[in-house]
């Protein structure tokens, strides 16, 4: 298996990795200059003012105020510049991804389970087309994991109990390491995989060969009936429950007077903790599905509800 290995520098592997590498080089230069200056001064002083060397030691710099203010200000200004530089790229890396092509990643001890919207699923591998912005929706089934692709200079923790969006985009086809970077138990170092970036036609071909079972949304629909959701939320139900058609992405007025947007998180919370945010005008009747549905199934349900139409941000 060929793996692209780019240790320090590769511009243009992803939209931000080049910027991060440039930042790294910048930091490296600044630190080398400071370190060089310091070592030069120390070495010079140590040689020149060694005890055995008879040299003029008079006129010692007594008043230190100017020096102090000088190097304090210089360090501060230098640090400030680095801070701004780093912060700017950080905000680009973690910007809210466009909802274009979503892939779902479930982390659990000790594997990465990836699900494509078409129903293809893979373990410890993620196939993506190149030069397309992909939105990863990540969830953890158990402990904290961290999704880390060193070649893209990209990492984000996956904390249980919440969804994490992350945008990735690869410019160049190849195989890249995927690591779990947050210690997660016995086989932590075995929780690795690879990102396979492919040209669009290759990707389409790959998708086709992956026996597309049923699309996730469709599986979600099956679950929807299996778990009995349709009994109340289905059309023609006798129980007064909100209809889910066209719900996704729309604002939902709640019984406590506030309003939330029906996004992934809201739907997830409504399934697991149905009584925490009750839609206005409805009785809090729904039972909790906590412990009854896995993260995988949750993703399918969400996709199903999404497929019922709605506004896509």
């Amino acid at each position: 298996m060929r793996r692209e290995w780019i240790p320090f520098w590769h511009s243009g592997l992803s939209p931000h990795s080049g910027d991060v590498d440039l930042l790294f080089i910048g930091l490296l230069i600044v630190s080398s200059l400071v370190l060089g200056l310091l070592f030069f001064l120390m070495a010079t002083f140590c040689v020149r003012y060694r005890a055995s060397n008879q040299i003029d030691r008079g006129h010692q710099t007594a008043k230190s105020w100017h020096w102090e203010v000088g190097w304090t200000a210089a360090s501060f200004v230098g640090f400030l510049a680095l801070f701004v530089w780093g912060a700017e790229i950080y905000f680009q890396i973690y910007r809210t991804p466009p909802d274009e092509l979503s892939v779902f990643v479930v982390a659990k001890q000790w594997m990465w389970k990836v699900q494509h919207t078409g129903g293809q699923s893979e373990i410890n591998a993620l196939h993506i087309p190149v030069r397309r912005s992909i939105r990863l929706v990540m969830a953890s089934q158990d402990v904290i994991h961290s999704f880390f692709i060193p070649a893209l200079r990209l990492k984000h923790d996956v904390v249980p109990g919440r969804y994490q969006d992350l945008e990735i985009e690869v410019e160049k086809a190849g195989h890249y390491h995927l690591f779990c970077a947050e210690y997660c138990g016995t086989e932590h170092s075995g929780m690795t995989g690879e990102i396979v970036a492919m040209e669009a036609p290759d990707y389409a071909a790959w998708l086709a060969t992956q026996t597309p079972e049923t699309p996730l949304a469709q599986e979600g629909g099956a679950l929807f009936r299996e778990l009995g959701c349709s009994g109340c939320h289905g059309t023609g139900s006798k129980i007064h429950a909100p209809s889910l058609d066209g719900l996704y992405g729309r604002p939902v007025p709640l019984s406590d007077g506030s309003t939330v947007t029906a996004d992934d998180k809201y739907i997830r919370d409504s399934i697991l903790l149905p009584r925490s945010q009750v839609a206005a005008g409805y009785e809090p009747l729904m039972p909790s599905f906590e412990g009854k549905v896995s993260e995988d199934q949750l993703l399918r349900l969400i996709l199903y509800i999404k497929s019922l139409g709605g506004r896509h941000p």
């Binding site: 801070f83 530089w85 912060a87 700017e88 790229i89 950080y90 890396i93 200079r153 990492k155």
Partner: peptide, 9 residues
């Protein structure tokens, strides 16, 4: 490490 973008990596 204090530098946000590099710390991500």
């Amino acid at each position: 490490l204090a530098c946000l973008a590099y710390d991500v990596h």
